[in-house]
Design a binder for these strands. Structure first.
Lengths: 331, 331
DNA sequence: GTGAAAGCGCTAACAT
DNA sequence: ATGTTAGCGCTTTCAC
C-alpha cells in the first residue's frame, strides 16, 4: 500500500554486509573487495535502490546542488547565461536549482534565503546588478556566491560580468564619428542596467564634445507601440541613430521608422545589444554588441566550483570581453 | 572558524523552551501561547536561525519541492511553459528544481532519476512527447508526475497538452480553401512533434482530396541558410504557401522569399506556430497558431498540486484550446 | 576490507 | 500549551 522505499539497510541485509559497506560501494570508495562490490552492486540493481539525496545531504552536510537565482527564465538574455551555468554544472556533477526572482528585491531576498535553507553548496545570482540588501546577505553567509551578468563594484563580491559602460561608449562613439546625431534607448527600469549604459553614452558624448541633453535618451518597455512614440521624440530632436539595450526594442523602433517610409540605415540607424536570433531575422538585420552570455554563465559556474572546493582562486572578479557586430541597420 | 550553524536546539536553549515548541512556532502550529511564540520568534530573529530544509525533508518525508524537466531553457516555447509552472508553484509555496534535459532520452532518464533521488514531492516533464522508456519510469514511481506541452496517448499518464494535429490540420485546411498549394515545414527531429503535425497536414490534404507527396514536406534546423534550400524545393513543386512549426524557421523562410523579391503573402504565404515576439517583429508579421503556453504550465502545476495532496482529480488528461491569429504573412 | 555506532537537524507521535 | 523521544536514511569516525 505504502510507497515502500528501499533503504541502504535493505540492500545491506540482502547482500549480507553492513550499511557502511553499501555506502562505500555507492560512493565509489576504493576500500571494498571487488567481489563484495559486485555482490552489493547486484543487489542494488535488483532492488532498484536509489540513494536518498536528502538523507545524504543531512549526514554529509553537502548537497552537490547549486542554486541559481534568475530574474526571468523567459528573458533570452538570462536564459543564455543559465545555459552556460547548466553545462558546466553537469560537467562537475552538480545539480541545479533554478529559482525565478522576478527582478524584485524582496523576492530576490526570499529566493536567496530559501536557497540557503535548502543547503545548496553554492549560489549564482544572475542579474544586471546586485541590490545593496542582497550584497549584505551575500557577505553574511558562508556559502560561496558568484554574481553573473551585470555590473558590480563591490570588490568583496565574486563576479563574472561584462563592461556595458565601455560597450555602450564604443558604440556611441562609433556612430558619432560618422557624424550621426545619436540617441540612447534604455530598457524597462527594473530589468536593465540603465545607469551604466547611460554613463557610457555620456562619456562618448563628452569625448566628442557634444552636449548631453535629456531628449537624447528614452526608456522603452517591450511593447511594440512604444516604438512610434520614442521615434517621434527623437526625430523632433534631430536624432538619426540610436543605441538600444535590447533587440526586441531595437526591432520595434526600427520597424516604426520603416513603417513610416524612412530608409534604414541612411535616414535612421539602429545599433542593438543582445545579438539574439531576432537581430538576424529582421530586415535589415540589426548591428549588435555581441555579449558572451553563455561564457559568462560557464565561467561563473567554474569559479563557483573552485570556491566550493576551497581551491586557490586568483581572479574573483572577471570581466569578459564583448565585440561589435555590424549589420544592415547601421551599414 | 567553522561555519557555525544555528540549529533548532540553539534556539530552544536560548528561549528556554523545548525544540518541539520552536518547531511549532516555525511551522505556524496554533498550539503555542502567544507570549511563548513571541519569545521564540525574538530569539529566532536575534540568532538569525534558518530552518534546515534538508533535515526537515528527511524527518517529514516531504520537501515542498517539485522537479521540472525542461528540454532547454533557451527555447522560448519551453521557457513560457516554465513561467506558468513557476507562478503557480510559488502560489502554492512549492520550490522548483528546474533540470535541463537536452531533449536526449538518456539524459532525460538521468535527470528524472536524480529528481526522484532529491525526494521532490512531484515532477512535471515538459516536452513535445514522452519516450516510452520515460513513460515506463513514470509509471513505476509513486511520485506524482504530470507531462506538459506535447502529445501523449497513454491514458495512464497525467498530462496537459495541446492538440497540434488538429491545429496543423486547421491551418492547412484554411490555406487549401484559398486555393493555395500548401507545404509543411517541420522542425529539428528531436525538438519537435513532427509526426503529429504531419498527420494533421495529411488529414487536411485528404479532406480536400489532394494527393500527398513527399516533396510537400521539409524539415528545417534553426539556421537561417536552410530557408533558401527549403524554398527552392518548394517552388520547384509549385508550393506557394507553407505551414511552419516554429517562428524562427518561418521567419527564415519568409526572408528567403522576400530576399529574392517575391511578394508575401501574394506569391508566397507563411503560417507559423508559436506566436512568439518574433512573429510580431518581422515584416510582414507572421500569422500564427496561438498556443496557451503559460496556461499549459499553470494548469499542469495546479494538477500536480492536487495529485500531491491526494485530492480528487476529475480530469487527468487536459487538452487546452488553441487559436489562429492571422497577420500579414497570409492576409 | 568491513562493521558498529553515533550523529546530521528536524518532525511527529505520545505524554503530561 | 509544552516537553520527551524515537526515528527519517545516510555518512563517517573508530574499531577490528
Amino acid at each position: 500500500m505504502d510507497k515502500q522505499t528501499i533503504t541502504i539497510y535493505d540492500v545491506a541485509r540482502e547482500a549480507g554486509v553492513s550499511m557502511a559497506t553499501v555506502s562505500r560501494v555507492v560512493n565509489g570508495n576504493p576500500n571494498v573487495k571487488p567481489s563484495t562490490r559486485k555482490k552489493v552492486s547486484d543487489v542494488i540493481e535488483r532492488l532498484q535502490y536509489r540513494p536518498n539525496a536528502v538523507a545524504r545531504g543531512l549526514a554529509s552536510k553537502k548537497t552537490t546542488t547549486v542554486g541559481v537565482v534568475i530574474p526571468s527564465v523567459t528573458n533570452i538574455f538570462f536564459a543564455a547565461l543559465a545555459r552556460g551555468i547548466d553545462d558546466i554544472a553537469s560537467m562537475y556533477r552538480y545539480n541545479i536549482i533554478l529559482a525565478n526572482s522576478d527582478e524584485n528585491t524582496e523576492r530576490k531576498l526570499k529566493v536567496f534565503n530559501s536557497l540557503l535553507a535548502s543547503q545548496v553548496d553554492g549560489i549564482i545570482i544572475i542579474g544586471h546588478n546586485l541590490d545593496q540588501r542582497l550584497v549584505d546577505e551575500v557577505k553574511r553567509t558562508h556559502t560561496p556566491v558568484v554574481f553573473a551578468g551585470g555590473v558590480i563594484e563591490d570588490p568583496e563580491i565574486n563576479s563574472v560580468v561584462i563592461d556595458y559602460e565601455k560597450a555602450t561608449q564604443e558604440v556611441t562613439d562609433l556612430l558619432l564619428k560618422r557624424n550621426r546625431k545619436v540617441g540612447l534607448i534604455t530598457g524597462p527600469s527594473e530589468y536593465m542596467n540603465n545607469e551604466v549604459r547611460l554613463n557610457g553614452f555620456k562619456n562618448a558624448l563628452a569625448a566628442n564634445k557634444i552636449e548631453f541633453n535629456e531628449n537624447l535618451i528614452a526608456q522603452a518597455d517591450y511593447t511594440e507601440k512604444d516604438g512610434n512614440v520614442i521615434l517621434d521624440g527623437f526625430l523632433a530632436e534631430g536624432v538619426d541613430s540610436v543605441v538600444v539595450s535590447q533587440d526586441t526594442i531595437a526591432a520595434a523602433v526600427m520597424n516604426a521608422a520603416l513603417d513610416r517610409g524612412m530608409r534604414v540605415p541612411e535616414e535612421f540607424a539602429v545599433f542593438s545589444s543582445n545579438n539574439s536570433i531576432i537581430a538576424e531575422l529582421v530586415r535589415p538585420q540589426l548591428s549588435c554588441i555581441q555579449l558572451p552570455l553563455y561564457d559568462i554563465g560557464a565561467v561563473a559556474m567554474r569559479l563557483l566550483t573552485k570556491l566550493m572546493n576551497q581551491e586557490e582562486v586568483d581572479e574573483r572578479q572577471v570581466v569578459l570581453p564583448h565585440q561589435l557586430i555590424e549589420r544592415g541597420s547601421t551599414l
